[in-house]
Protein backbone atom coordinates (compact mmCIF):
# COMPACT_ATOMS: atom_id res chain seq x y z
CA UNK A 1 0.00 0.00 0.00
CA UNK A 2 2.65 2.51 -0.97
CA UNK A 3 1.52 5.93 -2.00
CA UNK A 4 3.00 7.36 -5.19
CA UNK A 5 5.50 10.11 -4.89
CA UNK A 6 4.50 13.31 -6.60
CA UNK A 7 7.90 13.95 -8.04
CA UNK A 8 8.09 15.38 -11.54
CA UNK A 9 11.49 13.80 -12.19
CA UNK A 10 10.30 10.37 -11.10
CA UNK A 11 7.19 10.58 -13.26
CA UNK A 12 9.15 11.82 -16.26
CA UNK A 13 11.89 9.21 -16.02
CA UNK A 14 9.54 6.30 -15.41
CA UNK A 15 6.82 7.24 -17.87
CA UNK A 16 8.99 8.55 -20.68
CA UNK A 17 11.99 6.27 -20.49
CA UNK A 18 11.92 3.21 -18.30
CA UNK A 19 8.50 1.63 -18.83
CA UNK A 20 8.36 2.05 -22.65
CA UNK A 21 11.91 0.82 -23.12
CA UNK A 22 11.43 -2.15 -20.83
CA UNK A 23 8.25 -3.12 -22.70
CA UNK A 24 9.98 -2.73 -26.08
CA UNK A 25 12.89 -4.84 -24.86
CA UNK A 26 10.47 -7.52 -23.65
CA UNK A 27 8.72 -7.61 -27.04
CA UNK A 28 12.15 -7.86 -28.70
CA UNK A 29 13.07 -10.79 -26.49
CA UNK A 30 9.77 -12.44 -27.42
CA UNK A 31 9.91 -12.05 -31.20
CA UNK A 32 13.65 -12.59 -31.47
CA UNK A 33 13.65 -15.54 -29.14
CA UNK A 34 13.93 -18.02 -31.99
CA UNK A 35 17.30 -16.73 -33.11
CA UNK A 36 18.91 -15.50 -29.93
CA UNK A 37 18.59 -16.18 -26.22
CA UNK A 38 15.05 -15.48 -25.21
CA UNK A 39 11.56 -16.83 -25.32
CA UNK A 40 8.14 -16.56 -23.84
CA UNK A 41 9.02 -16.94 -20.18
CA UNK A 42 11.76 -14.33 -20.20
CA UNK A 43 9.71 -11.83 -22.20
CA UNK A 44 6.74 -12.29 -19.89
CA UNK A 45 8.92 -11.69 -16.85
CA UNK A 46 10.46 -8.54 -18.38
CA UNK A 47 7.14 -6.97 -19.35
CA UNK A 48 5.68 -7.90 -15.98
CA UNK A 49 8.65 -6.10 -14.41
CA UNK A 50 7.67 -2.99 -16.37
CA UNK A 51 4.12 -3.24 -15.06
CA UNK A 52 5.30 -3.71 -11.49
CA UNK A 53 7.61 -0.69 -11.83
CA UNK A 54 4.72 1.43 -13.06
CA UNK A 55 2.51 0.23 -10.22
CA UNK A 56 5.22 0.94 -7.66
CA UNK A 57 5.95 4.50 -8.72
CA UNK A 58 3.07 6.04 -10.62
CA UNK A 59 0.08 5.37 -8.45
CA UNK A 60 -3.45 4.46 -9.26
CA UNK A 61 -4.63 6.65 -12.08
CA UNK A 62 -1.59 6.17 -14.29
CA UNK A 63 -0.83 2.49 -13.76
CA UNK A 64 -3.59 0.47 -12.16
CA UNK A 65 -6.55 2.12 -13.84
CA UNK A 66 -5.00 1.78 -17.28
CA UNK A 67 -4.25 -1.91 -16.80
CA UNK A 68 -6.44 -3.19 -14.00
CA UNK A 69 -6.21 -6.58 -12.38
CA UNK A 70 -9.19 -8.09 -14.18
CA UNK A 71 -7.47 -7.34 -17.49
CA UNK A 72 -4.44 -9.25 -16.21
CA UNK A 73 -6.65 -12.22 -15.32
CA UNK A 74 -8.11 -12.16 -18.83
CA UNK A 75 -4.58 -11.91 -20.24
CA UNK A 76 -3.42 -15.02 -18.41
CA UNK A 77 -6.53 -16.91 -19.48
CA UNK A 78 -6.05 -15.79 -23.08
CA UNK A 79 -2.45 -17.03 -23.09
CA UNK A 80 -3.51 -20.40 -21.76
CA UNK A 81 -6.24 -20.56 -24.41
CA UNK A 82 -3.75 -19.76 -27.17
CA UNK A 83 -1.51 -22.61 -26.06
CA UNK A 84 -4.37 -25.06 -25.76
CA UNK A 85 -5.78 -24.06 -29.16
CA UNK A 86 -2.37 -24.55 -30.74
CA UNK A 87 -2.57 -28.06 -29.34
CA UNK A 88 -6.19 -28.81 -30.21
CA UNK A 89 -6.45 -27.31 -33.71
CA UNK A 90 -4.14 -29.91 -35.34
CA UNK A 91 -6.52 -32.61 -34.10
CA UNK A 92 -9.12 -31.36 -36.62
CA UNK A 93 -6.63 -31.71 -39.46
CA UNK A 94 -5.89 -35.32 -38.73
CA UNK A 95 -2.66 -34.86 -36.80
CA UNK A 96 -1.63 -35.52 -33.25
CA UNK A 97 -2.02 -33.22 -30.27
CA UNK A 98 0.48 -30.33 -30.46
CA UNK A 99 1.67 -31.34 -33.94
CA UNK A 100 2.54 -27.90 -35.27
CA UNK A 101 3.29 -29.04 -38.81
CA UNK A 102 -0.46 -29.33 -39.47
CA UNK A 103 -1.38 -25.87 -38.19
CA UNK A 104 -3.24 -23.81 -40.83
CA UNK A 105 -0.85 -20.88 -40.78
CA UNK A 106 0.70 -21.40 -44.20
CA UNK A 107 -0.95 -18.23 -45.52
CA UNK A 108 1.39 -16.22 -43.33
CA UNK A 109 4.32 -17.17 -45.54
CA UNK A 110 2.59 -15.45 -48.47
CA UNK A 111 2.37 -12.19 -46.52
CA UNK A 112 5.80 -12.30 -44.98
CA UNK A 113 8.79 -11.76 -47.16
CA UNK A 114 10.57 -14.92 -46.11
CA UNK A 115 9.52 -18.51 -45.69
CA UNK A 116 9.55 -20.40 -42.47
CA UNK A 117 8.40 -23.87 -41.70
CA UNK A 118 5.08 -24.40 -40.03
CA UNK A 119 6.78 -25.87 -37.01
CA UNK A 120 8.69 -22.63 -36.46
CA UNK A 121 5.42 -20.69 -36.76
CA UNK A 122 3.82 -23.05 -34.26
CA UNK A 123 6.68 -22.48 -31.87
CA UNK A 124 6.14 -18.73 -32.12
CA UNK A 125 2.41 -19.13 -31.45
CA UNK A 126 3.12 -21.25 -28.40
CA UNK A 127 5.73 -18.81 -27.13
CA UNK A 128 3.20 -15.99 -27.50
CA UNK A 129 0.71 -17.92 -25.42
CA UNK A 130 3.33 -18.58 -22.76
CA UNK A 131 4.25 -14.87 -22.82
CA UNK A 132 0.68 -13.80 -22.15
CA UNK A 133 0.19 -16.42 -19.43
CA UNK A 134 3.39 -15.52 -17.55
CA UNK A 135 2.73 -11.78 -17.88
CA UNK A 136 -0.79 -12.09 -16.53
CA UNK A 137 0.17 -14.44 -13.73
CA UNK A 138 3.04 -12.31 -12.46
CA UNK A 139 0.79 -9.25 -12.52
CA UNK A 140 -1.87 -11.14 -10.58
CA UNK A 141 0.73 -12.23 -8.01
CA UNK A 142 1.94 -8.66 -7.48
CA UNK A 143 -1.51 -7.11 -7.35
CA UNK A 144 -2.94 -9.56 -4.89
CA UNK A 145 0.11 -9.87 -2.66
CA UNK A 146 0.34 -6.11 -2.22
CA UNK A 147 -3.44 -5.79 -1.78
CA UNK A 148 -3.85 -3.33 -4.59
CA UNK A 149 -7.12 -5.01 -5.40
CA UNK A 150 -8.90 -3.66 -2.35
CA UNK A 151 -10.72 -0.76 -3.96
CA UNK A 152 -10.60 -2.12 -7.47
Amino acid sequence: MTEPHDSLILHFIVRAFMVPFIIVFGIYVLVHGEASPGGGFQAGAIVAAAFVLARLTLGREHAVNRFPTRVLIWTASLGMAVYLLAGVVPLFFGANFLDYSQLPVGWFNNIATHDETLRARGIFIVEFGVFLAVLGTLGILYDYLTERYLDD
Partner: peptide, 20 residues
Protein backbone atom coordinates in the same frame (compact mmCIF):
# COMPACT_ATOMS: atom_id res chain seq x y z
CA UNK B 1 15.93 -25.40 -15.69
CA UNK B 2 14.04 -22.78 -17.68
CA UNK B 3 10.81 -24.50 -16.76
CA UNK B 4 12.06 -25.07 -13.20
CA UNK B 5 12.67 -21.34 -12.70
CA UNK B 6 9.13 -20.49 -13.70
CA UNK B 7 7.71 -23.20 -11.48
CA UNK B 8 9.83 -21.78 -8.65
CA UNK B 9 8.20 -18.39 -9.20
CA UNK B 10 4.77 -20.03 -9.06
CA UNK B 11 5.64 -21.93 -5.87
CA UNK B 12 6.99 -18.77 -4.24
CA UNK B 13 3.90 -16.82 -5.18
CA UNK B 14 1.51 -19.39 -3.76
CA UNK B 15 3.61 -19.71 -0.60
CA UNK B 16 3.63 -15.94 -0.11
CA UNK B 17 -0.14 -15.88 -0.57
CA UNK B 18 -0.47 -18.54 2.13
CA UNK B 19 1.82 -16.54 4.41
CA UNK B 20 -0.26 -13.39 3.91
Amino acid sequence: MLTAIVVNVAITGVALAFLV
